[in-house]
Write a protein that binds this DNA or RNA. Sequence first.
DNA 1: CTGCATCCCTTTAGATACTG
DNA 2: CAGTATCTAAAGGGATGCAG
Lengths: 144, 144
Amino acid sequence: MSDSTFPPTQPPSTVQRCTPNLPGFTCGLDATLRIIAGKWKPLILYFVAQDGPTRYGELRRAIRDVSDKVLIQQLKELEADGLVKRTDYKEVPPRVDYSLTPLGHSLAQALVPLCSWGTEHMAEVSRVFAERAAWTRRERPPSA
Amino acid sequence: MSDSTFPPTQPPSTVQRCTPNLPGFTCGLDATLRIIAGKWKPLILYFVAQDGPTRYGELRRAIRDVSDKVLIQQLKELEADGLVKRTDYKEVPPRVDYSLTPLGHSLAQALVPLCSWGTEHMAEVSRVFAERAAWTRRERPPSA
DNA sequence: CTGCATCCCTTTAGATACTG
DNA sequence: CAGTATCTAAAGGGATGCAG
């Protein structure tokens, strides 16, 4: 993004147009989104990017609320997609860790602004979720 | 997760640690991800950021493969979350357009690197998807 | 043109229990 | 410790048809 001026209502758009008409993808963003589709993938990438080679259990504890099944599944996909590398030390008890490939690392870099955004706008985001929750509760009264 | 020194084997890692232990969110990235959860939301944000006020039909054509139901639904959520603004011109035939709020625009900016990443690594991404498709086809032979 | 309602299906993810 | 297997729930999403 080039300029820093911030348009009040209808921005003259500082966001550059992404390359359209790519084979299969509507634009670069589309491609990226498809590869990180999966509830926990960005979090996994980001965490591993921060901590370097990360053991399974460590990851599991870091990404709270994720089940074994899903975590493993997403790790496998990330591995198959060439974003993370799995290292099995063939020890007993088992020891395995996950690290990023160069490709994965570059993607993690691209996630940094999203993380910053979330941090900066935490207040708004929290409010939004509070409202969302309230609304949901009204619409769908306690399951019981 | 603890120190800032970075692991031996792989990355030069320039990825900064995101603020942990936030109320409800594990980090800023987590917060962001939750607000843009929804298959088309990032694409919507990005597209509107580029084109400024965008009419419904235009959006519909731009984000290919999205149905009315889903597009409307995601637009409503984005609106409720304070990221987009809906303007109804009360004309007949109906005219409505969607623009970004300042918050939405800032988020769109944060998406730029993802778009760039996708564009730069289009080749790898395409390959990955080709393999994924092949694998899927083996596992789940033609539905018929 | 814009948008909502309905019906239905697929995908995704969560719980739990179990194994090398 | 690091996974696997199975089963189930739920969310997300798509097609269609109607309405202002």
